[in-house]
Computed example of a mutant assay.
Amino acid sequence: MAKVVKLEPISREATINTNDNLLSALLDTELHVLKECGGRGLCATCHVYITEGMESLSPISKREQRTLEVITTCNANSRLACQARVMGTGVVVELPSGMYVNAVDDIESLIGRRAEQNILHPLDGRILVEEGKLITRSMITQLQDTQAQAGEYLANTTEA
């Protein structure tokens, strides 16, 4: 039976089948949500907050818990959308503000511009560049290094 999931702060609703994960609902609504680890619960790119209906989701697994522990913006309402399966009704999901660095298509084009939103680290969710801050060449180098490190980490976890 299908369940309706509310997405905030964008005031949208998504219909999802029972036992499907929240990530599928986010992707079905054409939101730019990444799944860097392929939905295995190893990265922070699908980190969301559950503002209502935590009891309507599957329990947190050990792998998800380990990943949540390293996300700097994690709180008691945090879940990884790829791991949280919808079992009941009344789920309201709040999307974190910001964009993960690996969602930036052309990092070089950002030089000299102000960040339109926070740019986040893909593995731990920390803010790399704050919204409104000027993006400098040195920041771009750090962002590129972060992309490379995240790619290496995720490639290594795939092999393991």
Rank of each mutant, 00 (worst) to 15 (best):
E130Q: 14
E130S: 15
M1V: 10
Q117I: 09
H121I: 09
L42E: 10
L154R: 02
Y49K: 12
K62A: 14
E131Y: 01
E52G: 00
V4W: 00
V104T: 12
Q65C: 03
I107F: 06
T72F: 03
A2C: 03
L68V: 05
S78Y: 06
L26V: 05
V91Q: 04
A150V: 06
A14Y: 01
P96W: 05
V104R: 10
D105R: 14
I16L: 15
L7R: 04
R114F: 10
E52C: 02
H121L: 10
K62N: 12
S61D: 15
G38P: 04
L80K: 01
V48L: 07
V104L: 15
R63A: 13
T45G: 08
T72Q: 09
M139A: 12
R113C: 11
R113G: 04
C74L: 00
S78R: 04
Q144Y: 02
S58E: 10
E8C: 00
T141M: 10
Q65D: 11
D28A: 14
E30M: 02
M87H: 04
R63N: 13
V104W: 09
A155H: 10
L68W: 07
G53S: 07
L128M: 15
E13W: 00
L154K: 05
S78Q: 06
N17C: 01
N77R: 12
Q147R: 15
T89C: 02
E94S: 10
T29M: 05
S58R: 09
L143T: 09
L26Y: 05
G38L: 03
G39F: 08
H121A: 11
L7K: 01
L31D: 05
S138H: 11
I10E: 08
P59M: 08
Q147L: 09
Y100A: 06
G112V: 06
E55V: 07
M54F: 07
V93H: 04
G125R: 05
I16V: 15
N77V: 00
I10D: 04
L31R: 07
D20T: 03
L27H: 02
I50D: 03
A14S: 14
Q83S: 10
I135N: 07
D124G: 11
T18C: 02
V93N: 04
L27Q: 12
L128K: 11
T45L: 08
A103E: 15
S24F: 05
V70Y: 03
A81L: 03
P96Y: 05
A148Q: 13
